Computed example of a mutant assay.
Amino acid sequence: MLQVTPHPGFGIPGFAVYVHWPFCKSKCPYCDFNSHVRERIDQERWRAALLRELDHYADATAGRTVTSIFFGGGTPSLMEPATAAALVERVAERWSVAPGLEITLEANPTSVEAERFQAFRSAGVNRVSLGIQALNDTDLRFLGRQHDAAEAMGAVELAAKTFDRFSFDLIYARPGQTVAAWEAELKRALDYAVGHLSVYQLTIEEGTAFFPLHARGELVLPDEDLAGDLYEATQTLLNAAGLPAYEISNHARPGEESRHNLTYWRYGDYVGIGPGAHGRLTLEGEKFATRAHRAPEIWLDRVARNGHGAHAPEPVDTDARASELLMMGLRLRDGVALDRLAAESGRDLDALVDPNALKRLTDGGFLERTPTHLRATEAGRQRLNAVLGMLLG
């Protein structure tokens, strides 16, 4: 256990709790998250283990105020609602909680899970994020999803009736996708998206079922030019609909942004609970990275023995803190506050990055520097990996 006392940090934007439920009904071929398929799950044992690890981190961070809870996965809508209720209750017992505490549950839109929405609402969940991914049945089958488009839209309608806030995800740049087809799909999504929509470009990650198919040329994604056109069409349509991008892949009406994810992008502190969960904690003026063992059964055994399933916390030095803050914060439309960057690293921007690269990027219209912030422009956010590579060397 971390035997340290909490430090309030320098303007840290919230303090979040992430709970990882590692199980899915099936593994999607594009997914590289820490998710697993099991025939049977001992729900009571998992509830007890998650609560015990939560207590471990609560002991280390006493006095903090939790601003959001996020149940991610995997497919956390497969957990018993009683588990979510117990964790929400324990958070409120061990920390103070902010007014308007955001509690989000990731869910799949299958009928069986959608029927559980009311039970999760009673457990304290007030926001749901649905993994829709596509609005046509052919592409849903290609993506390995177990729902069809009609079922997905039914789940969205039910979420709107059940929860205060909801969002859903779509994936674009799918094989054979045209700009016209994507625009039509987005317009249909906008009939349902009230406050928030997440839109991700399909990428091929090592360790996924898609990876060897792509390597053999059996799965061909849109080329860079077409992917750029799809991205630009997304920005145009969603801006016009009043859902501008507040982060590279996330669009929201003002005030509907994901408060939990903003904690990550603003480089706030967060506790990570469950197999493979990561965390960042500022303690006694230092930043620590925490990481739990990925394998569910090993994690369970470690919690039973040690009270947690985490590896030893690793200090994050000031150079890494500055790099992490820039990598996360430049994803946001608002960018990075320069005083926050100096507080995390002890140095100003010009001492942290290559000044020649910074000038080239600002002159080229990819970054914008003001007296208070460094921001990536829309062109810069579209090419952020390349921008960061130049900026951070």
Rank of each mutant, 00 (worst) to 15 (best):
S345N: 07
D350W: 08
R321P: 07
Y246M: 11
A86L: 07
D42L: 07
L170K: 00
G217D: 10
F15Q: 06
E102F: 02
L221W: 00
A114V: 07
V179L: 13
R127H: 06
Q133M: 11
Q3H: 13
K161D: 04
Y267G: 10
M1S: 14
Q43T: 09
T178W: 00
E286W: 07
P29W: 05
L281D: 05
A160L: 15
P296S: 06
E89D: 13
F168S: 08
R64T: 08
E185F: 01
A227P: 01
R253H: 04
A310I: 07
E183F: 00
P13Q: 05
Y231I: 05
G365L: 08
V387I: 12
T234W: 03
T290V: 08
S249R: 06
A173Y: 00
V387R: 03
R259W: 00
G335K: 08
T208Q: 06
R259G: 13
Q118F: 02
Y270S: 06
R347T: 00
R127Q: 05
R94W: 01
N126T: 07
L325Q: 10
D229K: 15
H7Q: 09
F366R: 15
S68P: 11
R321F: 01
G364F: 13
D363T: 14
R47Y: 01
A241K: 08
A322L: 07
R375D: 00
V194F: 13
P76H: 06
N261T: 06
G124T: 02
E205H: 09
T203R: 02
V19H: 11
E80K: 06
R40G: 04
R381A: 02
T377Q: 06
F166C: 04
G72C: 04
C28K: 12
D229I: 01
H147V: 07
A322D: 02
Y172H: 12
H293D: 05
P212V: 07
C28E: 12
R174N: 15
P275V: 12
R305Q: 11
I298M: 14
C31Q: 12
L78W: 05
E218A: 09
T370Y: 02
R305L: 08
F120M: 12
M328R: 03
L361I: 12
F168I: 14
T110C: 07
Y270F: 02
L391K: 09
E53L: 04
V303Q: 08
T138E: 15
V112L: 15
G73L: 08
N136V: 11
P99Q: 09
R121F: 02
L186W: 01
V19R: 10
T178M: 02
A114G: 09
H311C: 03
F211A: 14
R291V: 05
D334F: 03
S167N: 11
L101C: 09
G74C: 02
A84T: 04
I171P: 09
N356G: 15
A92E: 14
K25F: 01
A180L: 06
L238G: 14
E80Q: 05
Q177T: 10
R188T: 15
K27M: 14
Y18T: 04
A304C: 08
G74A: 01
K359G: 12
I298A: 15
Q382D: 08
R381M: 03
A322T: 05
M390V: 00
C31E: 08
A82C: 04
L213M: 13
G272R: 01
T178Q: 01
T290M: 05
V271C: 02
T290G: 00
M327R: 04
F70P: 14
P175G: 11
R40M: 06
G285A: 10
D301R: 13
P8E: 02
G11H: 04
